[in-house]
Every structure is written in C-alpha cells, then in structure tokens.
C-alpha cells in the first residue's frame, strides 16, 4: 500500500458541484446542487429512489450532461477535461457489468487500458488484494455475486485512484457481503487514504461508514453535514429526575415544553434551552440528576427530512400531561 494513510479529511476538494442541474425532458432530476467532497472524506449521498443520486453520480463521471452548473473532479471540469478529471478516479455501480464471456483477468485488462497502460504485475497485485487470484482466469459468467463485486472493486482500484465513487455498492449483497464490503471500504480509506463517495439506501451502512452526508429529496439537497451534526440535530432532551411525569406536566403548564415522550424525553418550546428547564425545576424543588440533548439516529433524521413537519419521529408520542 503505497499511498500515505490519511483517514482524516483535508480542505482540498476532490468533488465540487456548483449549481448543478439536470432535466430529462420536462422532468427535473436535479436542481441546483452544490456539494463539496474533501480529500479524506467518506461521503454518503442519501435519498429515495428517483431523488437524483444516480444522476448526480452520472454528472460527476461525465456520463450525463448537465442542464446547468459545473462538476469539478480532482480540480478539473469533468465535462470539459474528462481525461484529467477522471485519471485518478475509480467507480463501482450497483450492478457491475462485465464481459461475462471473458475471464476476470481479461476484463481487468480491458477496463484498465481505458485509463492507462497497466502492467500484468499491477493486475496481479490488485487481483490478489481483492482476493480473486485463484479464479481470476475463469470466465466471469462462472462468478458468484460476491466475486463480481470483488472484480468490480478490482477494476476500480486499477488506476490507483484518489477518489472512489460508488453508486449503491451494497445492492444485491447478502449481510455477509455487506459486512465484507464495509470492512473493505474502511480498509481502503485507512490504508490507501482514498476519498469515498457512496450513494446508498442502507442508512445503517452510511451511519457506520460515512463522515459526511448529503440528503437529496426530489432532486434537491435538503441537508449536508457531518454525522455528528445529524446526531446533534435533535431538539429533544433526556431528563433524569425523581418524578418525570410531574416535572414534565409543570414544564408544559409553564409553556416551556411542547411535547413529552417515552417517560424520559422532552421537546422544549422554541427558544428554550436546557439550562432554562434546569433552573426552573430546581426553583420548584425538583432534583435534576441528568439532562442531555438526545442523540438522534440517522434514520430518524432522514425520515424527518423526507417528511418535513412531522417532527423528528414519525409516530406520535402520547403526551404525559394529558
């Protein structure tokens, strides 16, 4: 592994999308997308089917022409100078397609030559790294789904990429395959210092892998930030006190709390910070053992974004005070 290990993100942007829009006929697929992926990021692109994730990836790879805006990859406009922009980029798609009638080795040779001269030693090295050495000379049509996924990874790694773009990489994999893929991606990030951008439906995968995410809804970006920001985005606080029900009732009567749930959580009224709640409870002679902002799961956050106006949890919670 020759590239310097650099698991942390730096300020150097490898992907810069500015005002990127795409319409297919009258239908807008992506609207004025601004997005920046820095070197060292593991960046997750989330959204429902048809949200524009694959279109955004197609635009990043110069496969789709933008209606407006620019896509700069590794510092170069991919639609004007794709040779330089994609020279150190690898890509993996949900259903990796190969020439099934040829061997894995021949497929690697074919795909790699579109980037640069690739010596046999390099092919062997990559095949070995992904664990395909034993079957690399077999025809791809004899490969299992997992082996095809590893071959897809091998072809993506051949140009010695700095940036790996993965469109729904876990699609069709079984739980063991998903685990293996996650470990591989983490290894690529840690050992080779690769910057990763992946689109996925699997929120748990994104939560375990990504450092930053963007959420797309109907072609528009509705969130971009770190997972830490996602977790802190909750407006619920967990309160530890002797009689939670009584404390919650009095806080609601005082107009300081909007909702209560699960016998431990409060949603303060707008503009009310936890310190105000603590001061009031202490004034009322109610002990406060613990108060902390509730950590939000990515799933809850995602659903909030997908269904705006329904609060951070989709299901209504009974009000303790009523």
């Amino acid at each position: 592994m020759s590239l310097p290990a650099s698991a942390g993100a730096t300020s150097e942007p490898l992907i810069e999308l500015r005002g990127l829009s795409k319409r297919f006929g009258a239908r807008p697929a992506l609207e004025s997308l601004d997005l920046t992926v820095h070197r060292g990021d593991i960046y997750g692109l989330l959204g429902h089917n048809g949200a524009g994730k694959s279109t955004a990836i197609g635009l990043m790879l110069g496969q789709v022409w933008p209606t407006a805006g620019t896509a700069r990859i590794c510092g170069h406009d991919v639609h004007r100078d794709r040779r330089r922009a994609l020279a150190r980029v690898g890509a993996i798609f949900e259903t990796p397609a190969f020439y099934d009638y040829l061997s894995g080795w021949r497929n690697l040779e074919i795909f790699s030559q579109y980037t640069a001269v690739t010596p046999a030693a390099r092919l062997r090295e990559v095949a070995d790294w992904v664990g395909l050495s034993a079957r690399i000379h077999s025809r791809v049509r004899t490969y299992s789904h997992g082996m095809r996924a590893r071959l897809a990874l091998a072809q993506a790694l051949l140009p010695q990429p700095e940036l790996l773009i993965l469109d729904e990489p876990a699609g069709g994999l079984d739980p063991e395959g998903i685990h293996e893929l996650r470990q591989t991606l983490l290894r690529l990030h840690a050992e080779l210092g690769l910057t990763l951008l992946l689109s996925s439906h699997l929120l748990s995968e994104v939560e375990q892998l990504c450092t930053r995410i963007a959420v797309l809804r109907q072609g528009r970006k509705v969130f971009e930030g770190t997972l830490a920001e996602v977790r802190q985005a909750s407006n619920w606080v967990r309160l530890g006190t002797r009689d939670f029900a009584a404390a919650a009732r009095r806080l609601q009567e005082a107009g300081l709390v909007r909702q209560v749930r699960d016998g431990a959580y409060l949603q303060p009224a707008p503009g009310v910070e936890p310190d105000v709640l603590v001061r009031r409870l202490v004034d009322w002679g109610m002990p406060v053992y613990e108060i902390a902002r509730a950590q939000q799961t990515l799933e809850a956050f995602y659903l909030t974004l997908m269904h705006p106006g329904t609060g951070s949890r989709p299901a209504p919670v009974p009000d303790v005070g009523s």
Partner: peptide
Amino acid sequence: EDGTLRMILARPVS
C-alpha cells in the same frame, strides 16, 4: 444494454 458502456465511460476515455 449490458451496462459495460457505463463502466467504460467512468474512465478518462473520450
């Protein structure tokens, strides 16, 4: 149709 064109055009070939 097979999807290999998308794989090729992820590469820096014009």
